[in-house]
Every structure is written in structure tokens, then in C-alpha cells.
């Protein structure tokens, strides 16, 4: 049986997520044994032609060129998985969606007319059909391997949508919100990081985006009780997953009411 071809694509992103695949040191040989790494410029300059059975897409759509290129990627891909907060929610660069991009280019670039960019940074799923979205900034290496594994065996990836709180409790971390009064997005954020920040007595930053049943209004009223002001709440919600629908709606609501 011919091995499935794997392609890794980059859009507006930092490369951290696709590097998670190279970081899978112990498992990398097994991955290379199970799939043919056909198009992965970070790993090899040899690029084989499509179609590709599995495409991993990193990054968000921020330019007219990328908006076209993703259509081409989709047409060459049988199973398309978006990886990371940029690809699944628009990333940190989606902050531009609330701002004037023309003003940014004028203040940053000496020759702004060379810049051909969109007014928005949007998720891949806003442009093409996506077969699976893997969250995280960055993604979790173990979850990436699970997605590849599930693809190989034709099963649904075991990537839970529940909150970071479950991961905190499983690793024996005491709740930083209850015990220290530390503001934390854990109760509304999807698990996947292993509850890293609370294990170091920090609140969750929401890197994995909204959990499956995220109740933002309830958490916001509790954070206000902990004397977090609305401007701080807006900033907390507008990071890597700012444009994820639930976080976006909550921060917009805070600006209206705040």
C-alpha cells in the first residue's frame, strides 16, 4: 500500500505550529515511516507534486494572494487540517480586524504602496472547507500526533473540547482563581496545553480558544468581582484567539457596555 502524502502549508503565522511536527523527536521517524513527507519546506527542499492525502495548514488569510492560494491548497488536498490559533481563529494578527490597516501600513512601512494586504486576518475555515481544526498557540505536539494517527486509521481524533480546568485537576493543580484570586480564562478555554500556566501559578491566557460550552458572561461577571476592569478584560480576550466567535462577541460586548 502506498503511503499517504503529507503536505504542510504556511500562511500568515510564525511557523511555531508546523515546527511542532519537527519537535516530535521521538516520534518523527514513526511519522516518516507512516506518511510520505511530500511537501514540507521546513523539513526538506524536495517538493513532490500533489494531490496530497493529508494537508496541515498553518496561518491565517491576510493577503489577496493567500486568499487565492488557499483555494489551490484545498483543491490539492484530500483531508485538510488547520493547525494553530492563526489558522483556526485568525491569530494575534486578527487584532487588525478592529483597527485601520491603512494607518498601520502608513506608520510602519517606508513605501506603504508596496503593501498589498487585506483589512482582516481570518481563519482558513472562513475561506475553504476544513476537515479538522487543531487549536492552540502553539498546538500541542501530542495532539498533532493524535490527529495524524487518527487520519491514518480513519477514526475521529480524540481531541476533547472541554475546559482547561479538567487538565488542572488531573495534574493536581489547585485552582489559581479560587485560591489566589488570580484572573484565569481556564474555565472558558479549551484544554490541550496540559494546563501549563496554572501549574506555574499564572492564570490561563486562552491560547487554545473557547471551550465547547464557554460561558463568557458568567466568567466575566466573576472576574469583575475580582476587580478586573473592563479594559483589562478586553485585552485578556483579544490575544491569539481574539477573533474566535465566543471571545470576539464577549470583547465586543465589553466595549459596548464598558
Amino acid at each position: 500500500m502506498r503511503k499517504p502524502k503529507l503536505a504542510v502549508w504556511k500562511f500568515a503565522s510564525c511557523d511555531g505550529c508546523q515546527l511542532s511536527l519537527l519537535d516530535a523527536e521521538d516520534e518523527l521517524l514513526a511519522v516518516a515511516g507512516a506518511v510520505e513527507i511530500a511537501n514540507f519546506p521546513e523539513a526538506s527542499r524536495e517538493v513532490l507534486p500533489g494531490p496530497y492525502q493529508l494537508s496541515l495548514v498553518e496561518g491565517s488569510i491576510t493577503t489577496p494572494h493567500d486568499a487565492e492560494r488557499i483555494q489551490q491548497v484545498r483543491s490539492e488536498s484530500e483531508f485538510l487540517v488547520t493547525i494553530g490559533a492563526c489558522a483556526t481563529a485568525g491569530g494575534i494578527q486578527a487584532l487588525r480586524n478592529w483597527a485601520d490597516v491603512a494607518e498601520f501600513t502608513r506608520s510602519v512601512y517606508a513605501t506603504p504602496e508596496f503593501i498589498d494586504t487585506l483589512d482582516t486576518s481570518t481563519a482558513i475555515a472562513d475561506h475553504v472547507t476544513v476537515d479538522f481544526e487543531l487549536r492552540g498557540c502553539p498546538i500541542n505536539k501530542g495532539q498533532l500526533l493524535e490527529v495524524v494517527n487518527a487520519f491514518l486509521y480513519g477514526r475521529r481524533p480524540d481531541i476533547p473540547g472541554y475546559s482547561v480546568c479538567i487538565e488542572c485537576k488531573r495534574r493536581g493543580t489547585t485552582c489559581v482563581m479560587v485560591a489566589d484570586g488570580t484572573p484565569c480564562l481556564g474555565p472558558v478555554t479549551q484544554a490541550g496545553c496540559g494546563a501549563l500556566c496554572p501549574a506555574y501559578h499564572r492564570g490561563c491566557y486562552g491560547c487554545f480558544g473557547p471551550a465547547e460550552s464557554a460561558n463568557l458572561p458568567a466568567l466575566i461577571s466573576e472576574l469583575r468581582r475580582l476587580e478586573v476592569d473592563d479594559a483589562t478584560l478586553v485585552r485578556a480576550l483579544r490575544t491569539y484567539n481574539a477573533y474566535a466567535p465566543e471571545f470576539r462577541a464577549a470583547s465586543d460586548e465589553l466595549e459596548v457596555t464598558g
Binding site: 480546568c165 479538567i166 485537576k169 485552582c175 472558558v188 471551550a211 460561558n215 458568567a218 466568567l219
Partner: peptide, 13 residues
Amino acid sequence: ATRCLACANCTMV
């Protein structure tokens, strides 16, 4: 249900 975060902390502890 309007107050519950469905975070599962109650069941974990």
C-alpha cells in the same frame, strides 16, 4: 445554567 461555567471543577474535586 446562566451562572454555570460547565468547567467541571465540581466533579473533579
